[in-house]
Structure formats: structure tokens, C-alpha cells
Design a binder for these strands. Structure first.
Length: 424
RNA sequence: GGAUGGGUGGCAGAGCGGUUUAAUGCACCGGUCUUGAAAACCGGAGUAGUCGUAAGGCUACCGGGGGUUCGAAUCCCUCCCCAUCCGCCA
């Protein structure tokens, strides 16, 4: 959420930002309502002040005059209640309008309506493989080695769920172990998080759990929801907390299951593991001061590259265009891995994403930091980035490392965890 | 899940309907004293919103929400959390 004061004072900049991001938001109305709200607040406070003054006198006033003062107090409180009610109504309306206004945008982010405007800015060290045979997709490879069981997943939980079996399980755990230990070496604090979170935490991060197009599974008769990413729980971890500036940047690496309804995604290219309702993800998260966030964002991006280079998977890095940033991101980089089994002869498919959300999430979550010796507090900046999303990493890994006989080469860095250098 | 006791400023801890602008102690910052330090003494200090060029006002905040009252940290309801005990259980 943006700062109201900022919106009032920079209405034109906010408007043009909304335009670039394809967000329809009535900024003029927000500004007008906010000005009304402030006036109502001043009014309510003034009634309250007068009422307080009357109440303070009652104890000292002679008994026969008390009734008169009480009546005066009642009247003032009634005025205060009315002003307060008006104020609260304005406040709620502003809040609901403001929650649909996206974050401001990094000046270097490419401008455009959707992912076609995304800008490729780098490639990984592993070249796109050339096969002297017809490469199989991960579904065929999975079937050969009995690694993924979609039919059983459907029987148990419906389409979009699956069982990992045999070597896929070893790969799953190997990817987690490898990425986690790499991040621990880089100073990230390892964390396993709840797989559910309350609705207000989801709102704070920028998810809308109960809308018609929600991506979120909610638990009936509770305020709990299955998390779509550990970003939700890691960000929520410090809800309403004040951090010390000297402990920033605070870098976390969390492991969680991720649940997504994928409502409205039917029909999109989604064979196999690419778009599923549940997967496991190793996620980076950072709390920083405002002047640290850009460099930490670059650091997270570099770590994502390091991981996929180490996995010997070809990828490109994309600077996400304004129209494709979503609500909270100020800037976003995606890693798109080469997936030989996608489309006709291979396609890029998103495997990681890292966002600098500046203070957009921290404002609603009320996560602040304090500088020693200075008065007051400031909102922290939050960043998130995928280390490894297991399902998509598996696709890229299996399809890129396949050999003519259908066997799959295990990248060197995973061999210690898998216990062998080849599947099949 | 049941029973009981609790949630007050950075921490400890009083207050249980109106001089509370939340006592007091510790920790913290500044000052006096001292060659320096300690001790002692004096003073200061929370968060947020809002008004004001400023100095400085004002309002809210004693786990969250609601209620009673002219007035609530204090009384009532409700939810959450913590502690201890019991039950159950990976």
C-alpha cells in the first residue's frame, strides 16, 4: 500500500504510474476523500478535546452542578461520535481504493502492457542444449523412470496434484539441501514456516484471498489460508515489529509448501508439473533499509543465477515490464529456464522471480525499523526471491540433462545429495 | 479439549472509576561534581496521527475488538496470546 500523504502530494506521478501498470484507480477521488477524512479527524478530535475538558471538571464541581455538566459532556460526546463515524467511513473507503493502487515503479523498468514487453538482460553460463535425438518432455522421462504419478494425484486430490516417487524424491530433497546450504553460507537464516497464514497477513503481502479470481485456498470457517509462497509467512513473521537498523539487512531463507488454485488458468500451456496446485519452494526474503534494497535485490538475482548455473540449466534473466509487475513490486527480475519439452522444440519457462517491494508490503504489515540515537521509526523495505521452486526446477533439470537412452544426468552439485550421477 | 492465573512504557513492576500529564526501580541519553572513571545529585527521554513557518499545541495508544459511564489501564462482554496443571497426541 502506498502512503496516503505521498499520494496526496504526488497525485500526478501516481496517476501516470497506474496508467503504465495497467491499473485503473481513481486517484483524484482518493485525494479528495483523504482531504475530507483529515478534516473530519480534526473535527472529531476537537469535540473530544472539549468533552475531555468537561469530564475533568466534574469531579471538582459542587454536587448540584454535576447534572448540568454531565449533560454538556453527553452532548459533546455525541458530536464526537458522529464525526468519528463519518471519519471511519471515509477511512474504510480510502483503504479499499488504495489497496488497488500498485506500488511505484523503478525508473529503469521496461514500460509495456504485459510480458511481451519484458526485457532480456542476461543469459546463464550453460548453453541451450542441442540434441542429436528427439528430446522427451518431463512427462515421458518421468514415466520411464516411474518418478511422477499424476493419475494417483488426481485420484487422491484431483487434477493438478501429483506424487513424486523414487529418484524424483531424491532430486526434490537434493534441490532443497543444495540451495539451502548455499544460502546459509551467504548469511541467510534458514527457516521452515507454517503452510497456512491468516487473511490479514495475506492482505499485507498483497494477496486477496476471498475474491472470485483468487489464487488462494481458504480454510472454511476460519481466517486461515494455505500459503501460495513462503513470502507470505516470512514477510508476516515481523508483522507489527520494529527492527533495529543495525540488524538490517535481515536475510531469511524459508522452505514451505505452496498451494495455488490456478483459477482461470485452464487451457493455458500447463502440461505436467508446470502449473500445479501444490509444490515445494525454497524462498529468499529480506528486510532492509531503503538505501539497501536495490543492492540486496541485485544480490538475490545474482544468487538465483548462481543456483541455476550450478544446476547447469540454461536460462535468461528478464527485467519485468510495468504491466506485468503485479501490485507490490517496485522492480522484478525473472529467471526463465530453457525447457526443451515445452512447445515445439523448447520454450523459456519461468523458474524464479525476485521482487523489490520497497515499503509497499511493510506499510500494511507495519514492519518498521529504528535507527539508534534517532527519534521515530521508518518502514522497512521487503524483498523476495525464489531460490528453487521444486516442480519447475525438476522440469528444467530432467529435460535439459536427458541423454539419448532416456537416462538423466545429475548435475555435479546435486550428486552428493542424490547419491549417484545418473538416473536410469 | 478442560481448569486456574495472567497480559501495563526497552525491561521489571505499581495502579483496579476522576490531581495518572501511567508511580517506582533498572537500563538509556545529557549535565553537575572529578585529573579521569565510579558513586551521588539534577534533568531528559515512547509510538502514531494532526495543526503550526517555528516555538509548541492537540488527539489516540495499558494484548485486539465491542459495551457501560460525563469520565475506563481500572467495570462488563468477546476474541487472541502467555504460564501452570490435567487429558489427548505426532
Amino acid at each position: 500500500m502506498l502512503d496516503r500523504k505521498y499520494v496526496v502530494e504526488n497525485a500526478e506521478a501516481v496517476k501516470s504510474n497506474c496508467l503504465q501498470r495497467g491499473a485503473s484507480a481513481d486517484i483524484d477521488r482518493i485525494v479528495a476523500l483523504e482531504l475530507q477524512r483529515r478534516a473530519k479527524l480534526a473535527e472529531a478530535e476537537e469535540w473530544n478535546r472539549q468533552a475531555n475538558a468537561v469530564s475533568a471538571q466534574i469531579g471538582k464541581v459542587p454536587a448540584q452542578e454535576r447534572e448540568e455538566f454531565k449533560e454538556k459532556g453527553r452532548l459533546l460526546r455525541a458530536h464526537k461520535e458522529q464525526s468519528q463515524k463519518d471519519h471511519d467511513a471515509l477511512d474504510r473507503e480510502i483503504d479499499s481504493l488504495l489497496s488497488r493502487v500498485p506500488n511505484m515503479t523503478h525508473p529503469s523498468a521496461p514500460i509495456g502492457n504485459d510480458d511481451h514487453a519484458n526485457l532480456e538482460i542476461a543469459r546463464g553460463t550453460t548453453p541451450i542444449p542441442t540434441f542429436d535425438f528427439k528430446p522427451k518432455d518431463h512427462l515421458e522421462l518421468g514415466a520411464i523412470h516411474d518418478m511422477i504419478d499424476f493419475e494417483a494425484g488426481a485420484r487422491v486430490a484431483g487434477a493438478g496434484f501429483y506424487f513424486l516417487k523414487r529418484d524424483a524424491v531424491l532430486l526434490d530433497l537434493a534441490l532443497q539441501q543444495f540451495s539451502l546450504s548455499l544460502l546459509i553460507r551467504k548469511g541467510f537464516v534458514p527457516i521452515t514456516t507454517p503452510d497456512v497464514a491468516s487473511t490479514d497477513i495475506l492482505h499485507g503481502i498483497g494477496f486477496i484471498p476471498r475474491g472470485p479470481e483468487t489464487q488462494i485456498y481458504s480454510i472454511e470457517n476460519t481466517e486461515l489460508n494455505l500459503v501460495a509462497t513462503a513470502e507470505i509467512t516470512l514477510g508476516g513473521m515481523y508483522h507489527n515489529q520494529v527492527l533495529e537498523a543495525e540488524e538490517l539487512p535481515l536475510k531469511l531463507v524459508g522452505i514451505s509448501h505452496c498451494f495455488r488454485t490456478e483459477a482461470g488458468a485452464a487451457g493455458r500451456a500447463s502440461r505436467g508439473l508446470y502449473r500445479v496446485h501444490q509444490f515445494t519452494k525454497v524462498e529468499m526474503f529480506a528486510f532492509t533499509t531503503p538505501d539497501q534494497s536495490s543492492s540486496v535485490h541485485e544480490e538475490i538475482r545474482a544468487i538465483e543465477c548462481e543456483i541455476f548455473d550450478a544446476l547447469e540449466i540454461p536460462y535468461r534473466v528478464v527485467d519485468t515490464a510495468t504491466g506485468d509487475l503485479g501490485g507490490p513490486a517496485y522492480r522484478k527480475y525473472d529467471l526463465e529456464a530453457w525447457m526443451p519439452g515445452r512447445g515445439n522444440g523448447g520454450e523459456w519457462g519461468e523458474v524464479t522471480s525476485t521482487s523489490n517491494c520497497t515499503d509497499y508490503q511493510a506499510r500494511r504489515l507495519n514492519i518498521r525499523y529504528r535507527v539508534k540515537g534517532e527519534k521515530g521509526t521508518h518502514y522497512a523495505h521487503t524483498l523476495n526471491g525464489t531460490a528453487v521452486a521444486i516442480s519447475r526446477a525438476l522440469i528444467a533439470l530432467m529435460e535439459n540433462h536427458q541423454l539419448a537412452d532416456g537416462s538423466i544426468k545429475i548435475p555435479k552439485v546435486l550428486v552428493p545429495w542424490v547419491g549417484k550421477d545418473r538416473i536410469g
